[in-house]
Structures are given as structure tokens and as C-alpha cells.
Design a protein around this nucleic acid. Sequence first.
DNA 1: TATTCGAGCCAC
DNA 2: AAACGTGGCTCGAATA
Length: 568
Amino acid sequence: MLVVLCPQPDGSVSVRDVDRAQAGLPVVAEQTVSLDDLAGLVREREAECTPEGTSPDASLRWVWADTATTYRALLDAGVRVTRCWDLRLCRAILRASALTARTGYATAPRSAWDEAPTAATAAPDRLFDLAPPVTLDPLAELRDQHRALDAAVGLDGRPESARLWLLLAAESAGALIAAEMTVAGVPWDVVEHDRILTDLLGPRPALGYRPALLEAKAAQVSAALGVEVNLDSPVELLRSMRSAGLPATSTRSWELQQIDHPAIAPLLEYKKMSRLMTANGWHWLDTWVADGRFRPVYVPGGVVTGRWASDGGGALQLPHQIRSAVRSDPGWSLVVADAAQLEPRILAAMSGDAAMAEAGRAADMYEGMVATGAVETRQQAKFGMLGAMYGGTQGESGRMLPRITRAFPQALALVEAAARAGEQGEVVSTWLGRSSPLPSAEWRSAHSAASAEGGSAAEQEAVRTQARSWGRFTRNFVVQGTAAEWALCWMSLLRLRLRALSEGLTDGPHLAFFLHDEIMVHTPTGLADEVATLVQETAHEAGRLLFEGSPVEFRLTTAVVTAYSDAK
DNA sequence: TATTCGAGCCAC
DNA sequence: AAACGTGGCTCGAATA
């Protein structure tokens, strides 16, 4: 059953049951509740359908415009749901997908549904932002989406609704998970974090002052350069280095490393310290950590490829330096699992390349590639694959490419085709049907102008450079995007299995962190081994869900630890 | 004074 | 090893 929440102009909510088994998605029951009573109703309806013994058709799927707003409010009221359909996220996928490109849904002009929702933080106490969206009709939008979904076809004209449905369900599940993880938070040891900062920077200074060790390091650099310099200003630093006779053309660390001068070592150390201070220092701690939890805001679908982005807190760039501050509660553990060589395995599975799939059965896929005889060392396999997936042409990557191409022709053909399509301004799609955006209007006009003869050689070369750049994007899009789909399925399956182990959100094992191909579960230590097994099983199931019949195994490196820094 | 922009470094 | 994909974040510099 689909249950659609339709906010009404008077502030109430019309709750409409829709039978998804019937054509046209008819409403079979309807009731209207006040906003105050909605959380209670959702709780009751969820409780009615117990997880065990219910057929999937009997399960509930809540349909709403925006999970970040509505589910956040439900969670704050202590209510969890099992499944949802996020109309905005699904819309974004369906409107852009090549599988639905010829439907009226995709070709219709933009509407208010395509506008970004207002920030959930602006009205955290409200289930819906009733200002403009009340004019939107969630039921009509749901029906439009299902019509488009039913009409989805591949290039060969065969129906493709099933895989696109899986993508939309996984995307929506991701939105639930993102909201739940923000509420649960990453367990954070503030004392340990402060110890790291104090060790590396000196004790926390008074407002407006730099910590002692950072100050001392800056003084060392100035002394070595023979001039007082503001190290935080790249312009001033470069000028000072050059007048001191250093052959620097920028202030990038990797370039400075090549230079032999007494100022370089302390300068590189200063940069490292300064970065820690500004990005994850005491100010960050004050802003983002409360009650022993780091609560970042995740943005599902925030990246074109389908990866998540984050909004504040820098959750997806948590430096290794401070990971020892991620520490489980007393009596609890962290189960940290990282998908091993995820993107190469994804490429092997989606291309159906037999030799690469064989390598993809190994615990370490790069070693598996060495075993096929294609390359001699793990390092060669790794750089060769990175080059294939990113479009690298230089260095070890470029050197390995011919051998990788010979050994795994089908896999390379897939990424090459994606690159060629991009170079010509065409759309490419992931395994489940998320499609790449078109290049910008400037890109396209420059491209067509260049192909229509005329234009200087320099102009034509500039256009070719642009084309190759977009080709590298589309090349990577198909692999990165499909990897993101696998990760969403993995996490969604795991979430459902974990739910069976506890009532509330945080009284038992729960997802605490997600980083593209890595998940963290915070769990009572007594359940850690069971959780680790579930993590493994769901990784395998996600592989079967996407690539039924493929021999590729999706292996994990799993660790049960107290501190994040002890994983891998 | 407020806003964008670019450099640089962090993550995968 | 080096410039080859996706992002966020922070700062100073440039712009309005």
C-alpha cells in the first residue's frame, strides 16, 4: 500500500491510501488529521504491519514530497517508518533518465516540483513547509511518476521499469537513512579530539589567538625566509618565497616538496597544522558536536552521479588525523565495513567481462587481476584500473592501459563507449538508469561551431580539449554512479535487517556513518559479530540484486573496533 | 560592507 | 605516481 501525505491549505493533512496493484493508482481509503495528530497516525499504521510474516504487498510505503523535512519531524516525534517514496528525489531521476526520456513526464516544462525545497532547518518543528508546496499535489505527482515508470524502455525498446523502480526505492531508502543518521549521530569523544588538537597545535588559545605550536611554526618559517610573512595568504607567501630565492610558482604542498630550502619543512608542517585547526579544530567541535555526537547533514542524490553530498560539518571529508575521536559508547562497538575495490568490481559486473569478473571473485581484486597474468604487480593493476575509469593517460596509468585493454576488452569497451558518448555531447546512464546531465549550452554551441568547419586551429583544439574533459566525466559517471547504486542497496538492505534487532532508533544496532563505499554501525558489543555477519550478507545480496547471475563478489574489509582509527 | 571567486587541501 | 573523476570547506583577494 502506498500512503500519500497531502498537506491541505487549512494546515491539516489528508492521508490517502493508494492501491499500487491497481491501474491508475486509485485511492481506496482516506482520512484527514491535524498536523499534531499525524505522527501518532504514522506510528499506528507502521505498528499494524509487523516486519515478520507480512507479504511485501501488505507493507506500507509512505509517499511525501521531501523526506528531509517530513521524516526529520517524525523522527523528532519518536516515529520511524520502514519505507518511503521521496517524490522530489524520484522526480529528479525520472525527469533526467534516458529510460523515460520519451515520456511526457520528462518533456513537460519545469514546475514547482523541480525547485529545491526550502531548508529543513528553517522550520524544524514543522512536518511540511506549507508556504508554496501546498499548491503541489503529491497524489497527482505520484501517479505521473508511476505512469513514466511503467513506460520506461531501454535503447532496444524493451521495458526497463524494474531496474528504474529499484533505483527509486533505493534512493528513497537512502533519504530515510540520511535523516536517521543525522538524528543518531556519530559517537564522538570530545576529550580525545581535544587531546589530538592540543598535541599537534598546543592548548586551546583564547579567542582571536593562534595556538602556541602553530604560532611557533609560523615563526620558524618567517625566520627561515628572513621576512615576516602571513602564511595564510598564498599571494603574500609566494611573493616572500620568490624574493627569498625559492623557485616556487605556487604554494601547493606537492610543488613545495620538490624545493630544497630550510623554510620548506616547517612551512609544510604549518599548512598541515593550519588545515586541522581551521577545518576540524575547536570551532568545528563547538559547532558540530553536541552531547557526544557529531550530527552532519547528508544530502542524498546531492552529487550528479548519485553519490551523497553533505551540507555543513564536512562529514564526507573526515580526516584520518581525527578519526580516533570517533569512539563507541561504553559497552558498545563500531562495526566498520569498507567495500574492497568497489568500482573495479562494479565495472566487471556491469560489463560482463568474463576475465575481469573472474578477477572480481578474489578477496583482493587487484591481486585477482595479477593472477590472470594481465599485469605483474598489484600496483600496476590498481593504476591501470584507475586510468581506465578516470580517463588517465599519463604515468603508470597510461603505460598499463594497453595491457589492461588486451586482458579485459569488454570492460574497457564499456568505459570507452561512455567516454565517446560524452565527447559527442550525448547522455550516458548507470546500470539502474540514472542519466548524466547534458553538457552546458556553451559547451554544445562551441562544439557545433567547431564541427561546422571554420574557426582557427586553436579554437578547434580548445573544443577538443573540452570534449575530452566531458568524456572523462561520462566515463567515470557510469562506474561511480553504479557504485553509488550498489552502496544504496547495500545500506538499505542492512538497515532493514538491523531494524529487526531493536525497537527504537538508537537503543540497538544502527547505522551511524556512510562514506561512499564504507559504512559504520554503532552497536552493543554483544551484537557486534552478528552485525558484522549482516553487513557481509547484505553486501552479497546487493550484488545479486543489481547483477543477478554475475560471478563478481562484492567483498568487504570489516572491523569491529572501539575507535574508527583502528579500522583498516 | 556584503558577495563572489580562486587557491588549496580534505575525503572517496 | 602525478594532474585523471566526484564533491565540501575555509581563507584571503577581488568585486560590487
